[in-house]
Design a protein around this nucleic acid. Structure first.
Ligand SMILES: [Mn+2]
Ligand SMILES: [Mn+2]
Ligand SMILES: [Zn+2]
Ligand SMILES: [Zn+2]
Lengths: 144, 144
DNA sequence: CAAATAATTGAGATTGTGTCTCAATTATTT
DNA sequence: AAATAATTGAGACACAATCTCAATTATTTG
């Protein structure tokens, strides 16, 4: 999904919600798109409180929440319980290295299928899920 | 595992760590055992700041952390991101109802095996994991 | 277009969770 | 019993996130 397309989705969401398309909102959304794959709100706040057209902390929080509501970003929690955001792509799960903190994404069809089967057997209708495997990544194993 | 056994485990841990076995620590641990299966720290703080032998907030936090380190409790995060503690039994995963907040525990051997296989294929050594499936429980489906 | 109305923003106050500090208390060791 | 060490409570502090409200900016209306 191109940045342009993502931007359009955000604009559509704002319009659908009757929210104005302001410079601040677009600015923050662009900043999100230009972040590395996993970022934190404080990164955005930092960037935006220095930048040419500075934006307040409150507005960053408000807008990140809006982007989240639009379903374009979501967060996971690291070992130290910090929120790490990522842009929403296809569904995937995570492996997180307990040594270096590296976050790896993976998707396994069989795993997903099996989860649904299990839910069925509990008469539970799954809507979404998160799965995080903590452990040691290849690099950190070799180093040790 | 009986409460007595759990208590003994806690005492053993304290001794192993060279920590004193104080009334406050035992009191808080007992309170944990008497909570319903999923509880929050604020519940304990509330209970203990009124009780006959009151205990300070700081000590509750300190002791909960110790019990966590002993591996006797752990927490999961709900939809609204609150920490919910549970006593550690055999490993299991969770289904959480988005309507009524009910937390169901489940264990599926095939799912666990598959996770390990996936980790292998990524040369990732798993240590622990959490998996939460959010959705709608049987009761809430019928109600609607 | 100008006035009226509505939405958004920024600054700082406030809330909530958890940790830290340090003097007083309690437990353990000598 | 005295000396030493650990623990506790109270409140200060740190931090993330939200809230309040006046000022600003955008949108709607006549
Ligand atoms: Mn998945
Ligand atoms: Mn599992
Ligand atoms: Zn690593
Ligand atoms: Zn339910």
């Amino acid at each position: 999904m191109s940045d342009q397309h993502a931007l359009q989705q955000f604009i559509d969401f704002l319009q659908a919600e009757g929210k104005n398309i302001t410079r601040e909102r677009l600015d923050i959304f662009n900043e999100v798109l230009h972040q590395k794959s996993h970022f934190q709100i404080k990164d955005i706040i930092q960037k935006k409180s220095n930048s040419k057209h500075r934006i307040s902390r409150a507005t960053v929080y408000r807008t990140i929440k809006t982007i989240e509501e639009a379903g374009l970003i979501k967060y996971i929690r690291t070992i130290n319980d910090e929120k790490i955001y990522e842009t929403v792509k296809e569904h995937h799960d995570h492996m997180i290295c307990e040594v270096c903190g590296k976050i790896m994404e993976f998707y396994d069809r069989d795993l997903e299928d099996l989860q649904n089967i299990i839910c069925n057997s509990y008469h539970f209708t799954p809507v979404r899920h998160t799965m995080k495997i903590f452990g040691i990544c290849e690099g950190c194993q070799k180093k040790k």
